[in-house]
Simulated assay, not measured.
Amino acid sequence: MWFDSWPDLVRIAVVGAAGYATLLIVLRISGKRTLAQLNVFDFVVTVALGSIFATLLLNTDVSWSEGLVAFAVIAALQFIVAGVTARWPAARKIVTSSPILLLSDGVMRHDALKRSRLTKSEVRQAIRGSGAGGVADIKCVVLETNGKLSVIPVDKYGDGSALVDIEL
Protein backbone atom coordinates (compact mmCIF):
# COMPACT_ATOMS: atom_id res chain seq x y z
CA MET A 1 0.00 0.00 0.00
CA TRP A 2 1.31 3.47 -0.86
CA PHE A 3 -0.75 5.54 1.52
CA ASP A 4 -3.02 4.73 4.45
CA SER A 5 -3.99 7.97 6.11
CA TRP A 6 -2.79 11.38 7.20
CA PRO A 7 -3.25 10.60 10.92
CA ASP A 8 -0.83 7.67 10.56
CA LEU A 9 1.79 9.94 9.01
CA VAL A 10 1.25 12.59 11.68
CA ARG A 11 1.61 9.93 14.41
CA ILE A 12 4.92 8.77 12.93
CA ALA A 13 6.19 12.36 12.77
CA VAL A 14 5.13 13.22 16.33
CA VAL A 15 6.15 9.93 17.97
CA GLY A 16 9.32 9.88 15.87
CA ALA A 17 10.36 13.34 17.07
CA ALA A 18 9.53 12.48 20.68
CA GLY A 19 11.27 9.09 20.42
CA TYR A 20 14.33 10.67 18.84
CA ALA A 21 14.58 13.27 21.60
CA THR A 22 14.11 10.54 24.21
CA LEU A 23 16.79 8.38 22.62
CA LEU A 24 19.24 11.30 22.62
CA ILE A 25 18.54 11.94 26.31
CA VAL A 26 18.92 8.24 27.20
CA LEU A 27 22.21 8.04 25.28
CA ARG A 28 23.48 11.20 26.95
CA ILE A 29 22.60 9.85 30.41
CA SER A 30 24.04 6.39 29.72
CA GLY A 31 27.47 7.86 29.06
CA LYS A 32 30.18 7.88 26.45
CA ARG A 33 30.70 4.11 26.51
CA THR A 34 27.48 3.58 24.55
CA LEU A 35 28.86 5.71 21.74
CA ALA A 36 32.46 4.51 21.86
CA GLN A 37 33.98 2.12 19.38
CA LEU A 38 31.86 -0.96 19.70
CA ASN A 39 32.72 -4.31 21.17
CA VAL A 40 30.15 -7.10 20.90
CA PHE A 41 28.23 -6.01 24.00
CA ASP A 42 28.03 -2.37 22.88
CA PHE A 43 26.95 -3.49 19.40
CA VAL A 44 24.05 -5.49 20.88
CA VAL A 45 22.96 -2.45 22.91
CA THR A 46 23.10 -0.24 19.80
CA VAL A 47 21.08 -2.70 17.72
CA ALA A 48 18.51 -3.07 20.52
CA LEU A 49 18.09 0.71 20.79
CA GLY A 50 17.64 0.97 17.03
CA SER A 51 15.08 -1.82 17.05
CA ILE A 52 13.13 -0.18 19.85
CA PHE A 53 13.16 3.13 17.98
CA ALA A 54 11.94 1.51 14.74
CA THR A 55 9.18 -0.33 16.59
CA LEU A 56 8.14 2.86 18.34
CA LEU A 57 7.92 4.66 15.00
CA LEU A 58 6.08 2.06 12.98
CA ASN A 59 4.01 -0.03 15.38
CA THR A 60 0.85 1.80 16.44
CA ASP A 61 0.36 -0.69 19.28
CA VAL A 62 3.48 0.67 21.04
CA SER A 63 3.09 3.96 22.89
CA TRP A 64 5.81 6.54 23.43
CA SER A 65 5.85 5.75 27.17
CA GLU A 66 6.42 2.05 26.41
CA GLY A 67 9.29 3.05 24.14
CA LEU A 68 10.70 5.25 26.90
CA VAL A 69 10.64 2.33 29.35
CA ALA A 70 12.28 0.05 26.76
CA PHE A 71 15.04 2.64 26.14
CA ALA A 72 15.56 3.01 29.89
CA VAL A 73 15.73 -0.77 30.44
CA ILE A 74 18.41 -1.22 27.75
CA ALA A 75 20.40 1.77 29.04
CA ALA A 76 20.14 0.51 32.64
CA LEU A 77 21.26 -2.99 31.63
CA GLN A 78 24.18 -1.49 29.71
CA PHE A 79 25.11 0.59 32.77
CA ILE A 80 24.90 -2.44 35.09
CA VAL A 81 26.90 -4.75 32.83
CA ALA A 82 29.54 -2.04 32.26
CA GLY A 83 29.84 -1.58 36.04
CA VAL A 84 30.08 -5.32 36.72
CA THR A 85 32.69 -5.87 34.01
CA ALA A 86 34.74 -2.93 35.29
CA ARG A 87 34.87 -4.46 38.79
CA TRP A 88 35.25 -8.18 38.04
CA PRO A 89 37.67 -9.36 35.32
CA ALA A 90 35.92 -12.76 35.11
CA ALA A 91 32.69 -11.02 34.11
CA ARG A 92 34.58 -8.91 31.57
CA LYS A 93 35.84 -12.09 29.88
CA ILE A 94 32.26 -13.30 29.48
CA VAL A 95 30.97 -10.06 27.93
CA THR A 96 33.96 -8.89 25.88
CA SER A 97 36.77 -10.62 24.08
CA SER A 98 40.44 -10.26 24.91
CA PRO A 99 42.90 -8.41 22.69
CA ILE A 100 44.96 -10.83 20.57
CA LEU A 101 48.56 -10.48 19.38
CA LEU A 102 48.58 -11.06 15.61
CA LEU A 103 52.13 -10.05 14.76
CA SER A 104 55.18 -9.98 17.00
CA ASP A 105 58.65 -8.70 16.03
CA GLY A 106 57.71 -8.69 12.34
CA VAL A 107 56.46 -12.31 12.40
CA MET A 108 52.81 -13.14 11.74
CA ARG A 109 51.22 -15.43 14.32
CA HIS A 110 49.29 -17.82 12.07
CA ASP A 111 47.42 -19.50 14.93
CA ALA A 112 46.13 -16.13 16.16
CA LEU A 113 45.18 -15.04 12.62
CA LYS A 114 43.26 -18.29 12.10
CA ARG A 115 41.50 -18.02 15.50
CA SER A 116 40.56 -14.40 14.72
CA ARG A 117 39.49 -15.22 11.16
CA LEU A 118 41.83 -12.59 9.71
CA THR A 119 44.30 -12.75 6.86
CA LYS A 120 47.89 -11.63 6.51
CA SER A 121 46.66 -9.17 3.93
CA GLU A 122 44.38 -7.48 6.49
CA VAL A 123 47.28 -7.15 8.93
CA ARG A 124 49.50 -5.68 6.20
CA GLN A 125 46.68 -3.25 5.34
CA ALA A 126 46.61 -2.06 8.96
CA ILE A 127 50.40 -1.66 8.88
CA ARG A 128 50.19 0.43 5.71
CA GLY A 129 47.34 2.43 7.27
CA SER A 130 49.62 3.27 10.18
CA GLY A 131 52.11 4.83 7.78
CA ALA A 132 54.71 2.07 7.95
CA GLY A 133 56.12 0.54 4.79
CA GLY A 134 57.65 -2.63 6.13
CA VAL A 135 56.57 -5.44 8.43
CA ALA A 136 60.07 -5.50 9.92
CA ASP A 137 59.47 -1.93 11.19
CA ILE A 138 56.56 -3.18 13.34
CA LYS A 139 57.00 -4.53 16.87
CA CYS A 140 53.45 -5.86 17.08
CA VAL A 141 49.90 -5.75 15.75
CA VAL A 142 47.04 -6.34 18.18
CA LEU A 143 43.41 -7.16 17.41
CA GLU A 144 41.59 -5.07 20.01
CA THR A 145 38.31 -5.99 21.73
CA ASN A 146 36.41 -3.61 19.42
CA GLY A 147 37.82 -5.22 16.26
CA LYS A 148 40.35 -2.46 15.55
CA LEU A 149 43.91 -3.42 14.65
CA SER A 150 46.49 -1.51 16.70
CA VAL A 151 49.91 -1.23 15.09
CA ILE A 152 52.93 -0.50 17.29
CA PRO A 153 56.15 0.36 15.44
CA VAL A 154 59.50 -0.77 16.84
CA ASP A 155 60.49 2.83 17.67
CA LYS A 156 57.26 3.41 19.67
CA TYR A 157 57.27 0.17 21.67
CA GLY A 158 58.80 1.61 24.84
CA ASP A 159 58.76 -0.83 27.77
CA GLY A 160 55.80 -2.79 26.35
CA SER A 161 53.64 -2.19 29.42
CA ALA A 162 50.60 -1.43 27.24
CA LEU A 163 50.63 -5.08 26.17
CA VAL A 164 50.28 -6.77 29.58
CA ASP A 165 46.66 -7.87 28.96
CA ILE A 166 47.26 -9.27 25.47
CA GLU A 167 46.27 -12.86 24.77
CA LEU A 168 49.28 -14.72 23.38
Score class of each variant (00 low, 15 high):
Ala72Asp: 10
Ser30Val: 11
His110Thr: 04
Gly67Val: 12
Leu56Thr: 11
Ala21Cys: 11
Asp42Val: 12
Val62Pro: 01
Leu24Ile: 07
Gly147Glu: 08
Ala54Leu: 07
Ser130Pro: 00
Val154Arg: 08
Leu9Pro: 00
Gly50Phe: 03
Val81Met: 12
Ser161Asp: 13
Arg117Tyr: 13
Ile25His: 04
Val47Leu: 14
Gly106Pro: 08
Leu57Arg: 01
Ala21Ser: 07
Asp159Val: 09
Val73Ser: 11
Leu163Phe: 15
Leu24Arg: 00
Lys139Val: 02
Val73Tyr: 00
Val40Lys: 03
Leu23Glu: 00
Leu102Ile: 02
Val164Pro: 08
Ser98Thr: 14
Ser30Ile: 10
Thr22Phe: 02
Thr55Val: 02
Arg92Pro: 10
Ala91Tyr: 09
Ser130Thr: 04
Val69Leu: 02
Ala76Leu: 11
Phe53Ile: 00
Trp64His: 10
Thr34Asp: 03
Ala17Gln: 09
Ser30His: 05
Asp159Pro: 08
Gly50Leu: 09
Ala162His: 12
Leu168Ile: 09
Thr34Tyr: 02
Met1Gly: 15
Ser63Cys: 08
Leu56Arg: 00
Ala90Asn: 07
Arg92Ile: 06
Arg115Val: 04
Gly133Ala: 06
Ala48Tyr: 00
Leu35Asn: 05
Ile100Val: 15
Gly160Met: 12
Ala17Trp: 09
Arg92His: 13
Thr46Ala: 13
Gly83Met: 08
Ile166Leu: 10
Val26Thr: 11
Val151Tyr: 02
Leu35Pro: 07
Gly134Arg: 11
Ile25Met: 12
Val107Gln: 09
Leu149Val: 01
Met108Pro: 07
Gly131Tyr: 03
Ala86Asn: 08
Val73Ala: 07
Pro153Val: 08
Phe71Trp: 08
Pro7Ser: 01
Asn39Pro: 10
Pro99Phe: 10
Val95Ser: 03
Gly133Val: 06
Leu38Pro: 06
Glu66His: 09
Arg92Glu: 15
Ile94Leu: 15
Gly31Ala: 11
Leu23Arg: 05
Ser97Asn: 06
Ala17Lys: 05
Arg87Phe: 15
Ser121Ala: 14
Asp159Gln: 02
Arg128Phe: 05
Arg28Thr: 04
Gly133Glu: 05
Ile166Gln: 01
Asp8Glu: 14
Tyr20Ile: 11
Phe79His: 14
Phe53Leu: 09
Ala70Pro: 03
Ile12Ser: 05
Thr96His: 04
Thr145Lys: 12
Leu56Tyr: 03
Leu113Met: 01
Asp42Ala: 15
Ile94Asp: 08
Leu49Asp: 00
Trp6Thr: 14
Ala36His: 08
Ala112Pro: 05
Arg33Asp: 13
Gly50Lys: 10
Ala36Leu: 00
Ala21Val: 14
Val123Arg: 03
Ala36Asp: 05
Pro153Asn: 04
Ala17Glu: 04
Arg109Thr: 00
Ile152Met: 11
Arg115His: 11
Gly158Val: 10
Glu66Phe: 03
Asn59Gly: 07
Arg28Ser: 14
Ala36Phe: 01
Trp6Val: 15
Val44Pro: 00
Ala90Arg: 15
Ile80Glu: 09
Val154Ala: 10
Gln125Ile: 03
Gly131Asn: 04
Ile94Trp: 09
